[in-house]
Structure formats: structure tokens, C-alpha cells
Design a protein around this nucleic acid. Sequence first.
DNA 1: TTCCAGGCCCATG
DNA 2: CATGGGCATGGA
Length: 285
Amino acid sequence: MPPDTLHVQNFDLASTLDSGQVFHWSREGEGFSGMIGDQPVRLHQRDENTLLVSPGSSALVSHYLGLDHDLAAIQKTLPKRDKPLQRALKYAPGLRILRQPMWECLATFITSSLKQVPHIRQISLTLRAKFGVQVEPELHAYPTPEALAKAGEQALRGCSLGYRAKFLHQTALRIADGTLDLEAISALDDAALEAALCTLPGVGPKIANCVMLFAYERLGAFPVDVWIERALRELYFADAPDELSSKQLVAFAHQHFGPYRGYAQQWIFHHARTSGMFSRQRKGD
DNA sequence: TTCCAGGCCCATG
DNA sequence: CATGGGCATGGA
């Protein structure tokens, strides 16, 4: 069967899938192969306005990729005279915030703490291969909470998880036994949702905000990791980079970037991490 | 060898 | 409430 064709605007598939939101997509030919929930999907952006997707997957893909987000309108709400932000935006204007499955996103970011992006990918693929349902020779669904709960902490440690194995296992248990209902808490407002997520083992403000942004469509969430913290200090507070606490940086971001600060965060993160603006081997200033 | 990575937990003050 | 040490693993 031929692929379905989606007409897209302001969309960049490669930047979106390689911006540190999601970690399991693989290049295949000119496109990507991966899973959306339990569905295997192929994606290929043929040109600026054409996205080819697996037959019958148009609605699923559109929802997952956030193709309904009005990026032009979102960009209008961002500070126009903010040079660093506009530069990051110009670097990858079609980068979109995904709507990932909640459990998959939560579990993946629990495994992300103090790990580099390639490691997170390795862990994610290993967990899928060992504990996820196989749907094709090279494609496995993300393991369910029940599967990871049953696997046990020791088996998870065997996936290079280190101290994160306990967090992932404990959280899987709590989701599997219904202590926390990830669907139900989507009814909460941002502050209450963050608090609910932070009750889970291994989930603090940063991971909670990632899950809110990448799975719950809370576009005002603002995850602060080492990249964003460094970028904000150097780009906006170069005179006294250590004057503000991390908490004060978040407060600045909230008022400065506005209601769609999550998008601003992702553009800045992607630019900072992949453009070489912070060369990694640089010694302490 | 040393440093660092999409942080969180827990013990102190 | 704010701060600092500890934590597993692997790549640069």
C-alpha cells in the first residue's frame, strides 16, 4: 500500500525527532521508523510541505507530532526583540512539541537523569527489546508499567540503568497498581499536575516538566536541565551569570517567554545542544 | 585520568 | 526553605 500524504507547514521532522524529546526513532532510508504507542509507523518528509506516513496512520501521526499547533501564532507571543531566542528559532523553526504517550514519556525521562542523549536512547531501545511487545523484527513497543514492575529492579539494572533502576521499578509498581492514574491527572491544572508527578520516585521538577510538556501538552511547562540553565545564564545574564538561583531563572523564564515558554525552552535547548554554541570540551570559565 | 551528562533524594543548617 | 554530597554508567 502507498503511504498517506500529509500537507504540512512550519514543520521539520528531523529536528523534531532529534531534539531530545523522544529517543527511539531510527533513520530508515530517507525517513524514520519507530512506534507511536503500539503502532509501528514510517515517516518521511519529502519536502517542506509534504509528509509521507504509513497507510492509515494520518490521524495518529498528526496528533503525535503536534501538527495542529499553530506555530505562527505561538511565535507571535514570544518576545520579538529577544536575539538569542530568535536565533534559536531561526535555527529550527519547524521543531514541534510532541504529544507522547504518558507512561512512555514518564518512564523514559526517569531513565534520563544525569545521562547523555545517546545513552538515553540506548537504554530506551534496550528496555523495549527486553520487556516490550515485539511488533516487527526491529520494532518493540515501550514496555508497560506491568511489564517493568514484573521484571524487577535487578533485571532493570541489567540495562545500564544504574541507580535509576530502583526509581523506574518503584514508579512502574505505583502506576501498575493504580496508586497514580496518569490519565486521570490530566484533568489537573499545571501546578497540581506537577505536584502529582513529583510524588513518583525519581521524578522531580525537571522530569515532571518534561513529561508535562512532551506528553500532557502543557506548553507553559519549562524544564530546566544543565543545558538550559547554562544557556539562560550566558545568554541573558552574562554580566553576573551566578547571581540568580535556579529557581529565579525559572521565574524569569515564566514572565519573559510567556504562555508558550515550553516552545521557547525547546528551541533554545535544541540550539544550545546541537549548534556547537557551547563546545563541550571547554574548561571552567 | 578526570570531567560531565535533559536530576533526584536525603541529610543538614 | 535553601544548600551540598552521593549516586551508576559510559563517553569525551
